[in-house]
Design a protein around this nucleic acid. Structure first.
Lengths: 249, 249
DNA sequence: CGAGCCATTGAGACCGGTCAAGTTGGGTGG
DNA sequence: CCACCCAACTTGACCGGTCTCAATGGCTCG
């Protein structure tokens, strides 16, 4: 049963029902009218090759995206400093939340590997929000969560050692993969060491050295970008134990 | 003309019209019905003494607040690290945006001086959002802006020297005071050096030293917590020029 | 096979943290 | 009004973590 763009499928299913990341998407929990309205607002999904970015016009973001497969990074350019990675996006994540409101662009979004995203223009989102309480609530929820994640990241960046940052980074991805039904202890990091360093505020050499040390300490196993976490509690201890800078003791 | 809680004033004015920070509040741009509905949802405003915090129940935030006068800080507590200041709030700022969605608490909100806030319970906000497109849009706008600010902060924390962080901090407050109609070059910092250090990821001694150096360099003048910025462009140069860590040059 | 990118490893320098005094200033009580 | 106190701030000396620079190894791709 093929579907015409923006129309319901004959059997009453929406395109979203067929999406593998339905459970993490904004559309979760939408029912009846709202669900079909949401579905019909979606643009055809886009594919990005490694290194390609989500096009945006003159520093303006005009759409929200949901990652279907693959992964992306957000890169913020600033005067007087090198570009900086501020976020990694995995399947099911919402990209572009920080453009909501005035469409100003938080930074380039670049695919780390071959990636599919699903596009939802802000303009159409507006009208959906008017009618669907569930969607509003999910969107606010997502933004609130992102704000809290940013807080956590700010804390990590300002008062923690390189060891703590990397342990925390690994645990973050462990958790995120777990939420997506993948192994929480063995996964592939699609970003380079340079990306990790930029994200964590560390020099690339430090990233390499600390990961090497973790391996010697049998906390993890490394094979290129493939990581195996040998002891989650061990990594937690690294984050919590050695109290790091500003610890006050 | 006194007013009964939650009722319109006889002359058709809302309480918000009388608020000195109307122009920066969520209620800006609301008209007619929406404005009065908004007004009627407000709890009586609360006063906090220096050091008092906005009460929240068991780690949950249940209201949004607008600062009327005074200032506050957000403090995040974490295991294995000392408390950390993540935000400063000035008159007109919205407090509690990161609790929107699931009401989880981002951190304690503590008054830095005698402070008045205006309370708007999330539960009531919900129903307002249902009907007012303008309010929805303003709220999303505020959250998007906050997300972008957090990005900026993350960049500042991860790739910049102490000098850059402090110069940037001073310029941030300059800008914020300017937006509120105060002097952008001469203002009072209501927070302690320790708060500044925590916010910027620096030791208190470093804050003191760098500020002292800025004074020697005639970039600023200090008298306790009173700061005068002598050259905004000079401070900008500090942020942009000395390319700091990770600059790659 | 060489070019180029990415990652690793080592040596040295420096920024900023820690520890320890010393100073200032506001508040309290005699 | 002064003596005292305590918190906040400043200043100095030292040390350590992390950055920088540089060289090397491994992988992919033309």
């Amino acid at each position: 049963m093929s579907f015409v763009s923006g129309r319901l499928l004959p059997d009453g299913e929406s395109r979203c029902d067929k999406c593998s990341h339905h459970s993490r998407c904004l559309s979760l929990g939408l029912e009846g009218e709202a669900k079909y309205a949401f579905d019909s607002m979606l643009e055809r999904s886009r594919q990005l090759k490694r290194g390609e970015d989500l096009a945006y016009e003159e520093g303006r973001f005009t759409s929200l995206y949901v990652v279907q497969t693959g992964s992306l990074k957000q890169v913020v350019s600033q005067v007087g400093a090198r570009d900086q990675v501020t976020h990694f996006y995995l399947p099911g994540d919402l990209v572009g939340l920080d453009g909501i409101g005035d469409g100003r662009c938080g930074g380039k979004i670049i695919a780390l590997e071959s990636t599919f995203v699903c596009e939802l223009p802000f303009s159409k989102l507006e009208s959906l929000l008017q009618n669907s309480c569930a969607l509003r609530s999910r969107l606010f929820h997502s933004m609130g969560t992102e704000l809290r994640n940013d807080r956590r990241m700010m804390c990590l960046l300002s008062g923690h050692t390189a060891d703590q940052r990397l342990a925390s980074f690994l645990l973050e991805f462990s958790e995120r993969f777990k939420l997506r039904g993948y192994s929480p202890t063995c996964f592939n990091l699609s970003m380079s060491r340079a990306d990790i360093g930029s994200y964590l505020g560390l020099a690339i050499e430090t990233v390499s050295r600390v990961l090497g040390r973790f391996q010697k300490q049998e906390l993890i196993m490394l094979k290129g970008r493939q990581v195996t976490l040998l002891t989650l509690t061990g990594l937690c201890h690294v984050v919590e134990d050695s109290l790091g800078r500003h610890s006050g003791f």
